[in-house]
Simulated scan of single mutants.
Amino acid sequence: MTTSTHLYGQLFDQLRQHSRVCDLRHLKALAWMVSALLYSGELNLAAWEPYVVSRATKAQSTERRWQRFMDNFRISVMAIYVPLVLAALSGWKQQRLYLALDTTVLWDRFCMIHLSVVCCGRAVPLLWRVLEHSSATVAFEEYQPVLRRARWLLRHHPDVMLLADRGFANQQLVKWLRQSHWHYALRLPCDVLIHTTRRYPWMVGVLYPPLGEARLYENVGLWLDGEHRCNLVVATVQGAKESWAVVTDEPPTLQTLWQYAFRFRVEELFLDSKSGAFELEDSRLRSAATLERLYLVAAIALLFATTQGMAVQLAGLRQQVDPHWRRGISYLKIGLRWLQGVIYKGRTLLPCVPLLPNDPEACFASLKAKHDYDDHIWFHRVRSVVCKPVSILN
């Protein structure tokens, strides 16, 4: 058995085990596409032919097979992927789940709404939706279905926190999070009105402290009416381009900033999808529905390679693919390098493991990167303020 068919067999077995309601023909085609993507590194239908074993003698026939999959409206992306990612999160019920919500734009024409799980220094796709929308800013009604589906899927996880940037901070989202009993850490734009100890509201940008200082506000009111009460942390971090203003439902501490910083893991996921690992923007597909199915191939590949990298770490084989003395690359890159070695160096394809809730070894590319991380967020002055609602006189 060749290494490509070995990888295909493991992928197909995993898909068949978890995605039982799907047509086996669809799962076979999907397993071949994921296998070809892992070996080629290109999200391009025409680039997968050398890595697929089939009876087709013409490259065009193979490409048409993938195109039929992408155009098939009967294929449910979530019915295939969700069981896989939930199985990978099977050991997380006693751990807090950090969900990062963000958007990315493709070719200034399509907007992908992305909800991912923060895991071991990176983010793993959970749910996504593609809209024909040229801006990265979308209305609450567009990403609410993604959040509602996630709430149902994660109903057995008692501790979930949503992380989102300034474009998502609105009254509808905060109300929905409270009704869903999810924790949150949301960054506010500088022009949002905040009710503190003053009689009248201030724009949050006025509250930004000097460099190296942080202020912790408890029980502030949001927006013009001030009805939404929460906690606020504003800080000006050394080396940051802008000051941060993060609202949370939990007690305001410096831990709030550390939690919100997990959101940047999804930026690295976008980088891996677009250029770091796979070339998402090199695909020739220009339809929202087909792009959702194309990203299904990428999401499974990202999940499989990440778990393969974790299996390499647990087996004590990391230094065979990572030149650093301590872990210096992500588990995704470790997994991809290991899989490349499976086909070119005869390495053993390791059994899949669930996503690790706790990182056994932090990732730093150098000692300087570790020192920069350790000293990245520090303050020489921290001030706490308790706000009480103030009635406005007519």
Rank of each mutant, 00 (worst) to 15 (best):
K333E: 11
P252K: 08
S283R: 13
L154D: 05
F264K: 09
T290Q: 15
I80R: 09
A299T: 15
G91Q: 14
F110P: 04
T348R: 14
G91R: 13
H228R: 02
Q238M: 10
H114S: 05
G309N: 08
M70G: 08
Q308A: 07
Y344I: 05
V174Q: 02
Y295S: 07
L269S: 04
P83G: 09
A298T: 14
S134L: 06
H156P: 07
C120V: 00
R187Y: 01
A315W: 13
T2Q: 03
I113G: 07
E268D: 14
R381K: 12
A136Y: 03
L84K: 09
Q144R: 09
V385D: 01
A305G: 04
F270D: 05
C363P: 15
Y217C: 03
A56W: 04
G276M: 00
Y260Q: 06
C363S: 14
K388M: 10
L285K: 11
L271V: 06
L37C: 04
S40C: 15
T2K: 00
H157Y: 08
V220N: 01
G205N: 03
F264M: 14
F364P: 10
V124Q: 02
G346A: 06
R337W: 05
H195C: 01
T196G: 07
V204Q: 00
V117T: 05
G221A: 04
R68A: 05
E268K: 01
G9M: 06
S243C: 04
V321K: 10
D374G: 09
L177C: 04
T3N: 07
R199A: 08
L207C: 08
G328K: 15
H26K: 14
V204D: 00
L350H: 09
V192I: 14
A301M: 14
E227I: 09
L356W: 11
R151N: 10
Y331E: 00
M203W: 00
E292M: 08
A47Q: 12
V85C: 12
L254C: 11
K370W: 07
L84P: 00
L97V: 09
I75D: 02
A29P: 10
Q171A: 12
C22Y: 01
M33T: 08
A369G: 06
K388L: 13
N358W: 11
R109L: 12
V353R: 12
S76K: 14
A164V: 00
D13G: 13
Y184K: 03
S287V: 00
R122S: 04
L147F: 13
G221I: 00
E141K: 04
K345E: 10
R74W: 15
T196W: 02
W66H: 14
A47C: 11
V382I: 09
D322H: 11
G41D: 01
V386M: 05
G212N: 13
